[in-house]
């Protein structure tokens, strides 16, 4: 099982303290709802875990991944796929965007071709396959970005406000893709400041409040292992993790 473990993490922008946390763990099999008000640092936390930015203090380590080639200096990058709130689609067709991650996947050409075909059908974008990605609507762009990640079958996936641009139809399509990844064991961190169709899949919650990250489990997902993060299902509901 692969996991990302953050220890003694602190993030500041200049003098502004964003958050700090003693220990956080994102592993395969978990589906976590990341909550917090606007500007509390949800995106920053996700980018930290994705290796796109560095923490002011502390370290994030990986466990269970294949060893990196010597030229890859950043051990975190590429471990967890991060999807922006407004996903970036490369200049080119829908098909080009879906095929972009192919060289980085550990799959045969046949498997990639089949997964791409399935992804485009699941996202209901077959009729737009040859269209420029820039011409898609907000919801279609989100579906395309999630389909692109689905093809990769990542071990860890982070979705930043994934349903913010979506109507009910798009939300249902995305739910199918995300549920599928969940069943395949992909660990997920889904940020959303309010409940949505995707947060119903979550078995754990992280809340960023008062510059602290607090963790809780849903009632039917109490962890068995002794080394799990501290939890308390009684009042107060959340345990401050730092």
């Amino acid at each position: 099982m692969v996991k990302l473990v953050a220890n003694n993490l602190e993030m500041k922008f200049g003098e502004r303290h964003i958050f700090s946390v003693d220990r956080l763990q994102l592993s395969q099999g978990q589906t976590i709802h990341l909550q917090g008000d606007n500007g509390c640092g949800k995106t920053t936390l996700m980018k930290l875990l994705a290796g796109l930015i560095s923490p002011s203090r502390g370290a994030i380590t990986t466990e269970g991944f294949e060893p990196l080639p010597w030229w890859r200096s950043n051990a975190l990058l590429g471990k967890a796929v991060y999807l922006h709130q407004h996903p970036y689609l490369f200049d080119g067709s829908v098909e080009y965007n879906l095929s972009y991650p192919h060289p980085f996947c550990n799959m045969t050409k046949q498997q990639l071709s089949e997964r791409t075909q399935t992804a485009i059908e699941m996202a209901e974008l077959t009729h737009l396959k040859n269209q420029a990605a820039s011409s898609l609507s907000g919801g279609e762009k989100q579906r395309l970005a999630i389909a692109r990640a689905w093809i990769m079958q990542p071990k860890l996936l982070m979705l930043d406000e994934p349903t913010s641009n979506m109507d009910r139809f798009s939300q249902d399509l995305v739910l199918t893709m995300i549920s599928d990844l969940q069943q395949l064991g992909t660990g997920m961190l889904i940020s959303s400041h309010q409940s949505c169709v995707l947060t119903s899949l979550c078995n754990q919650t992280w809340v960023i409040e008062n510059q602290h990250i607090m963790s809780s489990y849903t009632a039917n997902n109490i962890p068995d292992s002794a080394d799990s993060a501290p939890i308390n299902l009684q009042e107060p509901r959340y345990v401050i993790a730092n």
Binding site: K47, A50, G51, L52, W71, R72, L77, G78, A80, V81, Y82, H84, H86, P87, Y88, F90, D91, Y100, P101, P103, F104, C105, R148, A149, M152
Partner: peptide
């Protein structure tokens, strides 16, 4: 900036990331 971040988070190497940005 998202072009670089997306490329890298999808697994592109540093060099491939630069090529992607240049293509954009």
């Amino acid at each position: 900036r998202r072009a670089w971040e997306t490329s890298r988070t999808l697994g592109a190497s540093w060099f491939r990331g630069i090529l992607t940005v240049c293509r954009e």
